[in-house]
């Protein structure tokens, strides 16, 4: 089943007098439970594409159907709801709240989804944090955790609301290679149990975990191939 349908995506920035076309007509489809890597050099437009797919931004023109709904026309607050319910972000720099415990970080999206019962939220956060294998460290703050553990907390936060898509932007970029392999095998597992995963990376090693790769050059798709 088609989960994401992107049609004629343009993102154009006006930098003084020059016009920068970060995305110059991108059209693609992503199926449910796909394991996809978006690749490209810096400046290729892959970050812009990720922001648009992640509903952090809206395109200058084009349509974006997420689960059959056109989100390109949505307001800021509607996009916030989509991010909360449908998308789980995993960032290169983890982006955890530094002064809150791991459990609290994982609980946070649930607060914004309007789950008002604290017990309910705790139950869901616990399930997510157990899933990434950090049950014994859930009361630690991010600075008391290793890089790999921090990224596991971030993945648990991305999972907690059971989103349709997990969107990971260079998820191993700040980790050593051994920890990177561990994190990638976690994504492999999440894919196996049914999540749709989109990786954004410039590393071939990471992209190899995906089943399909899309290469971007100058804001256009240059190559779209199934590798498994």
């Amino acid at each position: 089943m088609t989960l994401i349908k992107v049609k004629d995506f343009y993102k154009i920035y006006q930098m003084g007098l020059t016009e920068v076309r970060a995305l110059n007509g991108v059209t693609m489809e992503i199926q449910e439970n796909e394991y996809l890597a978006i690749m490209g050099q810096s400046g290729s437009g892959k970050s812009t594409l990720m922001n648009l797919i992640g509903c952090l931004d809206t395109p200058t023109s084009g349509d974006y159907y997420l689960d059959g709904v056109n989100v390109a026309l949505m307001s800021d607050d509607e996009l916030a709801m989509i991010r909360n319910k449908q998308i789980g972000f995993v960032f290169q720099t983890f982006n955890l709240l530094p002064k809150s415990s791991a459990l609290r970080n994982v609980e946070l999206p649930l607060i914004y989804s309007g789950i008002y019962s604290k017990e309910e939220r705790m139950k869901m956060a616990l399930i997510a944090i157990e899933k990434v294998g950090l049950g014994d460290r859930m009361h630690h703050k991010p600075n008391e955790l290793s890089g790999g553990q921090r990224q596991r907390v971030a993945i648990a936060r991305a999972l907690v609301n059971n989103p349709a898509i997990i969107l990971a932007d260079e998820p191993t970029g700040n980790l050593d290679s051994k920890t990177g392999v561990e994190i990638m095998s976690l994504f492999d597992e999440l894919h196996k149990i049914g999540h749709t995963i989109i990786l954004v990376t410039h590393e071939d090693e990471i992209a190899k975990h995906a089943h399909r790769t899309i290469h971007l050059v100058d804001g256009k798709i240059s190559k779209d191939e199934n590798i498994k």
Binding site: G54, L56, D77, A80, M81, R83, K85, Y112, S113, N161
Partner: peptide, 16 residues
């Protein structure tokens, strides 16, 4: 600012 960005990314609305 960073914290606000994180909160917004995971679904906080303007009103939140």
């Amino acid at each position: 600012i960073k914290e606000i960005g994180i909160r917004k990314a995971i679904g906080a609305t303007r009103n939140n």
